[in-house]
Design a protein around this nucleic acid. Structure first.
Lengths: 174, 174
DNA sequence: ACCTGAACACCGTTCAAGT
DNA sequence: ACCTGAACACCGTTCAAGT
């Protein structure tokens, strides 16, 4: 089929990986198309063959970190399922503190969608349905996002923040 | 426009007002120090006498829009107080859709702090205290922020979004 | 198909100098 | 105290050209 070449080729995924590395290492302001290209040993303009725009790269980077959120197997304890998913969700964002600030854009990524659907399904197993199911799904999702945004903004997350977050989640799953 | 009219003097507040106008009119990408200066009939570098950095301007702009959120007089119906405050909070953010995306750092502004304290006081009147008061305050604040962030990201807010938001709030004030 | 080089139209910020 | 002008070190993106 395809012979592996000695030179690593450029690709969409390689670009996204490099972008995440740059964001993790040096923060939002460090992600420029030029520095990104440099970290890949390539010309800035080369990126544009694989990617439409910088905004595009940012969106892919956000969706990428959601891919690391483990989707638990659905168990018979729906509350635990929700807590596991949402805890991983929050942890992923706090592990990449640049991500919450970037969630002003395409949450349309497939990884994000899959997690949201799992959340909704778990709440469905909890007996919610109809409008109430939609309400509670959004309530939880927006609480998690809001928490991540404000905590990431503050710099570091304290044990007190963790406590308040889990307390809030308990309140919602009561 | 009116070159004959004597130019008003530059000031911190005049800069912030112009920044908000620019953000409202043309969005985040339009706010550059150069265009901001131009809209004030002044040299880009003149801004730096009144303001430290562009980040500074952004922070002031966010706090400014929170100043427009009416803080209701505390009544004997704490639930209504919460709903009024939080509704105005959300409305202000959706009126300036660039704001949620900018809620990075400047939740330290005085306008923001005043609203948060009113929220906590109202919940206190509702009988919450100790850890539970902190938990619920954060829960509501982060829900509002998360809602504004995701809705602003999606472009426009539909009546369905409104419905889900108020449903969520009812759930929290149950 | 995939990448380079040069170019365009911008940026934020500093700093000496003017008033 | 307040503002200008020039300059520095960057940006994202397009496009012809090479392979």
């Amino acid at each position: 089929m395809e012979t592996t070449r000695p030179r690593r080729e450029l690709s969409r995924t390689r670009i996204v990986d490099a972008a995440v590395a740059l964001l993790d290492g040096e923060g939002t302001h460090a992600l420029t198309m030029r520095r990104l290209a440099q970290s890949l040993g390539v010309t800035p303009t080369a990126l544009y063959w694989h990617v439409d725009t910088k905004e595009d790269v940012l969106g892919l980077a956000v969706d990428h970190i959601f891919g690391d959120v483990p989707v638990p197997a659905a168990s018979d304890d729906w509350r635990r399922d929700v807590r596991t998913l949402v805890g991983g969700w929050r942890a992923a964002m706090l592990r990449h503190p640049w991500a919450p600030g970037l969630i002003g854009r395409p949450m349309r990524g497939p990884n994000v969608r899959a997690r949201t659907e799992f959340l909704q399904a778990a709440l469905g197993r909890g007996g919610h349905e109809g409008r109430r199911l939609d309400v509670v799904t959004r309530l939880i999702a927006n609480f998690v996002i809001g928490s991540a945004v404000t905590e990431a903004a503050w710099g570091r997350t304290s044990p007190h923040d963790d406590d308040l977050f889990h307390g809030g989640l308990d309140e919602l799953l009561r």
